[in-house]
Design a protein around this nucleic acid. Structure first.
Lengths: 169, 169
DNA sequence: GAAAAATAGTAGGACATCCGACTATTGGAG
DNA sequence: CTCCAATAGTCGGATGTCCTACTATTTTTC
């Protein structure tokens, strides 16, 4: 309250935190800052990832499906399992698989024992793309996520608790 | 690396990290885990927030616009400023303001000196809703964001660096 | 001062996400 | 064994986000 230099481009989240306290919402100010930070950081990270994936004509959502299959034992999983692992709605899986199938990266196969279920199987082209896209992401984003190594560790650790409490695993 | 008990329902991100290392992508494994954690945590946080806001018939995107106006000096801002502060595309602001205006929570007014610009002004109903929605969010989410106080501090701190490096402020 | 560049908003399109509803199949209750 | 709840997927609809134009006004340049 004694800073004579009112910075013009202050951190908007710090600013919101200050306003929260001013309005008597001090007990929620830290939480608000945490949630809001998460939202912004997500935008930033997603944007970086998507820009690397764009040349491969896949979005991050589809890349995740591809990698889940790529890393699975038989390179094939039921739709439902994909949704559970990625924690997204069934209809989102349907949507992603539709597009991946159109692009020839996966194929739908009937489940051998449960006729309700559908297996999604990675094609050779899908595996090849998964490898190339991963190489690009590793080099351009993951190897240098814009955080110090200790920050990365701290972030993963904090968010793991949050994910677990939310039933992620 | 010496744990003899392979848990069945393991943390999917820890599992992915292990696979990254196995595939020789160890230098990118931590970054992958960090970015992926961010994506999941965002989903979790957004879902909690949206479920609290649903009764008020606003989404988080619109709530953010509302609060930005609510906390501004004159409860009125140009579209452009809203986009900059929230770090979203101009067209997203147009979209959000369209819906807020339909709901009678804001009104568009011509900018007094720049005829290109449009001011978005909070209505009395908008201010009232902003207050009620904030009370609900504070009580149901922000006051207990699902993280320990020290984790919250750590998270905000780590993400502030990331946001700054990305040009957020 | 007039032409060129930059800025503010909007329109249309592509995607992803969720929700509710609907079909088909499986499995448990009586 | 039959009926009904649970499960797997898909469809249509609503929202939000970004991108690429395109229009209307400034602002800058020469």
């Amino acid at each position: 309250m004694s800073d004579p230099t009112p910075r013009l481009a202050a951190d908007p989240i710090a600013e919101a935190h200050r306003q929260w306290v001013e309005h008597g919402w001090g007990d929620a100010a830290d939480g608000m800052a945490a949630i809001t930070s998460l939202m912004r950081a997500h935008q930033i990270a997603l944007s970086r990832v998507e820009s690397v994936l764009r040349p491969f004509d896949v979005t991050f959502a589809r890349y995740e499906v591809l990698m889940l299959l790529y890393l699975s034992r038989r390179r094939s999983l039921p739709m439902r399992t994909i949704g559970s692992r990625l924690q997204v709605h069934q209809t989102s899986v349907t949507n992603a698989v539709d597009r991946l199938e159109e692009a020839g990266l996966v194929v739908r196969r009937p489940h051998p024992t449960d006729r309700r279920a559908t297996l999604v199987e990675l094609t050779r082209a899908g595996a090849a793309l998964a490898e190339r896209a991963t190489a690009a992401l590793n080099a351009q984003v993951f190897a240098d996520p814009g955080l110090s190594p200790s920050s990365v560790t701290s972030l993963v650790s904090v968010l793991r608790r949050m994910r677990r409490d939310a039933g992620d695993f």
